[in-house]
C-alpha cells in the first residue's frame, strides 16, 4: 500500500469514520447510564484516596489535589481504554465474511482503523463533558494548571486516543488467529487498566515497578495526559512525552498492518 493510494482514499476513510461516529452517537441513554456509574466510581475512589492521604505523614509523589484531578479525568475519559474489539469486525472474522471486505477498493487496515476511531470517539464525546462538568462543579476537579497545560493535555489526549485505537485495532486483528473470541481482548483490557493508571495513579506505584511501567505503551493512555493536566508532569517534559505516545501508536499501527496482511494472506489462500 503506497502512501499515494492512502492519500487518494482519504475522503473514503474519513467518511467511514464519521459514519461510525454518527451511528454511535445514537446511543445517548448508554452515555447517561455510563455517566451515573462512573461518577459513582469516581466518588468511591475519591473517598479511598482522601482516607489514604489523611492517614499518611510521608510526602507522596503526587499531591491530593493532583490525585483528585487524576481520578476524575480517569472517569471522564475512561473510554480511552482499549476495552473491547469492534463487534462488527469481530463478527465478520468469526463468520469468515471478512474476505468480502476485500471487495471494496480500500486499504483494509486504514478502513478498520478509521472505523474504530469513529466508533470509539462517539461515546467518549458524549460522556466527557457530562462527567467533567459534574466533577468540576461538585467534586473537586480543578481547572488545568495553566492554559499551556490545558493545550498539552488536549494534544496528549488526542495522542492517547490514537494509541488506544491502535491497540484496539491490533486486538481486533488478533481475532483472526484466536477466533474463539475476546480472550486476548479481555486480557489486554485488564492489563491496560492497571498499567495505564486507571485504577491506581502510576506515580503511587513502587519505584522499581515504575521503571517497568515507563517502558510500556500503556501509560500513554491515561497517566501522561492526566498528569500534564494538573502540572504533575512539567510542561518542559511535554514534547518528549508526546513523542513517546506517538511513537508507540505508530509502532502498534505498523504491527497491526503486518499482522493483518499476514492474516489476510492466509485467508485468501485458505478461503475463509
Amino acid at each position: 500500500m503506497t502512501a499515494q493510494t492512502l492519500l487518494r482514499g482519504w475522503r473514503g476513510y474519513r467518511a467511514v469514520m464519521s459514519a461510525r461516529l454518527r451511528e454511535m452517537l445514537q446511543y445517548r441513554t448508554a452515555a447517561v447510564a455510563g455517566m451515573v456509574t462512573q461518577v459513582f466510581w469516581g466518588l468511591i475512589h475519591l473517598m479511598i484516596y482522601q482516607a489514604f492521604y489523611r492517614s499518611t505523614a510521608t510526602p507522596q509523589p503526587m499531591s491530593l489535589a493532583e490525585t483528585v484531578d487524576y481520578i476524575w479525568l480517569v472517569q471522564a475519559l475512561l473510554l480511552l481504554m482499549p476495552w473491547r474489539t469492534d463487534a462488527e469486525i469481530q463478527d465478520m472474522i468469526r463468520t469468515g465474511n471478512v474476505a468480502f471486505e476485500l471487495a471494496k477498493p480500500a486499504d483494509l487496515y486504514t478502513l478498520w482503523f478509521a472505523r474504530i476511531l469513529g466508533g470509539r470517539a462517539a461515546p467518549m464525546l458524549l460522556r466527557f463533558p457530562l462527567i467533567y462538568g459534574m466533577a468540576a462543579l461538585f467534586f473537586g476537579l480543578r481547572l488545568p494548571a495553566s492554559p499551556a497545560a490545558a493545550g498539552a493535555f488536549v494534544l496528549s489526549v488526542l495522542a492517547a486516543f490514537l494509541l488506544s485505537s491502535a491497540i484496539t485495532t491490533l486486538m481486533t486483528i488478533s481475532l483472526m488467529w484466536t477466533l474463539a473470541g475476546d480472550g486476548v481482548a479481555r486480557l489486554t483490557a485488564t492489563f491496560a487498566s492497571v498499567l495505564s493508571g486507571s485504577i491506581i495513579p502510576l506515580p503511587l506505584f513502587p519505584g522499581n515497578l515504575q521503571r517497568v511501567l515507563n517502558l510500556l505503551p500503556f501509560r500513554g493512555l491515561m497517566d501522561v495526559p492526566f498528569r500534564l493536566y494538573s502540572g504533575n508532569i512539567p510542561l518542559s517534559a511535554f514534547p518528549r512525552e508526546l513523542a513517546l505516545q506517538l511513537a508507540w501508536a505508530l509502532t502498534l499501527i505498523v504491527l497491526g498492518r503486518v499482522l493483518l496482511a499476514r492474516g489476510m494472506r492466509r485467508l485468501v489462500v485458505q478461503g475463509g
Partner: peptide
Amino acid sequence: RTQLWWDLPVIESFELLRAIYR
C-alpha cells in the same frame, strides 16, 4: 449479506460508498 450500514439511513451508506469509490 449487505454492504449497507445497519444503523444509518440508506442514503448515508450511499454517500459513504461514493467516498470510498471516489
